[in-house]
């Protein structure tokens, strides 16, 4: 199975970092992978995205035309990428920040009030980790334990004091997903 994940939103939401954690988990599992950021004059507040491929086969191009996993954390990103998602793919929407629903009928959609959940945890900047926790719980693209390991490896020394909070955010995302799977809306 090849997971072609696009994570998109505003700069400053930690999209490149959550992509790096996912990629690093792939590395720890000995999988084939690539991580590619959008780069440009994109500062905090601008749009930003990264593409992560995790596969059992060698990765050719790191550029994703049709993601089978899309994580969106602002409406412009949903507008931009919704049509590109491969049929049967899964879209993870931060429903605290995106008012509208996904229009596609041929994809699976998960709405997570990630930013609201993060704010309630007094960790508003960790909505990305809640989203990531939900993705891994739902798709099993990497093992949950590996991802927690990956987080420990990738968090910068400057933010090491936030490791526990990051782990909690991932856990909250996983729990949200597990609960909604148990009682589908």
């Amino acid at each position: 199975m090849t997971y072609e994940t696009v994570m998109a939103g505003f700069g400053g939401q930690g999209l490149l970092f959550s992509g790096k954690v996912l990629a690093y988990a792939g590395l720890l599992e000995g999988r084939e992978l690539s991580w590619l950021p959008s780069y440009g004059p994109e500062m905090r507040g601008g749009t930003c995205n990264c593409s992560v491929i995790i596969s059992d086969e060698p990765v050719g191009s790191p550029i994703i035309a049709h993601p089978n996993v899309l994580m969106v954390m602002n409406e412009p990103s949903l507008d931009k990428f919704e049509d590109a998602v491969a049929p049967g793919g899964t879209i993870f929407v931060d429903s605290s920040l995106i008012a509208r629903k996904v229009r596609r009928a041929d994809v699976d959609v998960v709405y997570i009030p990630a930013t609201q959940m993060a704010t309630e945890m007094e960790a508003a900047s960790l909505a990305n980790m809640i989203m990531l926790g939900a993705i891994v719980e739902k798709l099993g693209c990497v093992k949950s334990e590996t991802m927690l390991d990956a987080l420990k490896h990738t968090i910068s020394a400057r933010k090491a004091n936030l490791l526990d909070l990051n782990l909690k955010a991932v856990e909250a995302g996983r729990r949200f997903m597990a609960d909604s799977a148990a009682s589908p809306a």
């Binding site: 990629a23 992978l33 690539s34 991580w35 590619l36 950021p37 780069y39």
Partner: peptide, 10 residues
């Protein structure tokens, strides 16, 4: 090319 510089891989 810019992609090779920016991308991460093992």
């Amino acid at each position: 090319d810019g992609t090779m510089g920016q991308m991460m891989e093992p």
